Amino acid sequence: MSGSALKIGELAKMTGSQVETVRYYEREGLLPAPHRSEGNYRLYDLTHVEHLQFVLRCRSLDMTLNEIRELLKFRDSPEENCGAVNELLDHHIGHVTTRIAELQSLEKQLKKLRKLCGQSQKAKDCQILQGLSKPQSTKARKLASHGPGCH
């Protein structure tokens, strides 16, 4: 084991994450299994810290767990050609571009709905509530079924 042994709470604190996040990434295979103490405590080292920081950075960029798994394969095989990494990132950029367009459409719909009611009044007369009762467009249904952040 390289470096000093860290318990799970120390690893979480060092990386600005939560203990349950560490356990989750372990279960998902994104973080190598830690060594165990004689008392069966998880013991991590600086390699785990670096690995978890990589995963957390990828998540902060809204990458899926599968995308992160692919990137980790390349990170762990430094002699491999990184062409697939470029393709993965290009695909992710396309996904982000699509989500931005969907969110801009959502913003327009919400602003249009908000303009229906310019003053406080009885709920029975609220144009926003009436507007929400109308069937939505196909595009709006698609956005609602996927929800923000889903892949």
Rank of each mutant, 00 (worst) to 15 (best):
G9W: 01
C82Y: 11
H35T: 11
A140T: 06
E28P: 06
H35G: 09
V96F: 05
S4C: 04
D45R: 02
Q119E: 13
S105Q: 13
R59G: 06
K13T: 11
A140R: 07
I8C: 01
L46K: 11
L61F: 13
H92K: 13
T98I: 12
E87P: 12
R59M: 06
K142E: 10
F54H: 07
Y41P: 09
G16K: 01
S2M: 03
E26H: 05
T47W: 08
V55W: 04
N81Q: 10
V49R: 05
L65V: 15
L116W: 01
H92I: 14
E38P: 15
E20K: 14
Y41L: 04
E67W: 12
K73S: 08
N66E: 15
G39Y: 07
E107I: 13
K142S: 06
Q130G: 12
D90I: 09
S145E: 11
D76F: 01
K73Q: 14
N66Y: 10
V22F: 02
D76A: 00
P34G: 05
R141P: 00
P135G: 10
G39H: 07
A140L: 06
V55S: 03
H48Q: 11
L56W: 14
K111A: 13
L11G: 00
Y41W: 08
F74Q: 03
C58P: 03
P148Q: 09
P34E: 09
L31Y: 00
D76P: 00
G147M: 04
E80D: 12
I68Q: 00
V85C: 10
A12H: 00
K134G: 02
A123E: 09
L6A: 02
L71Y: 00
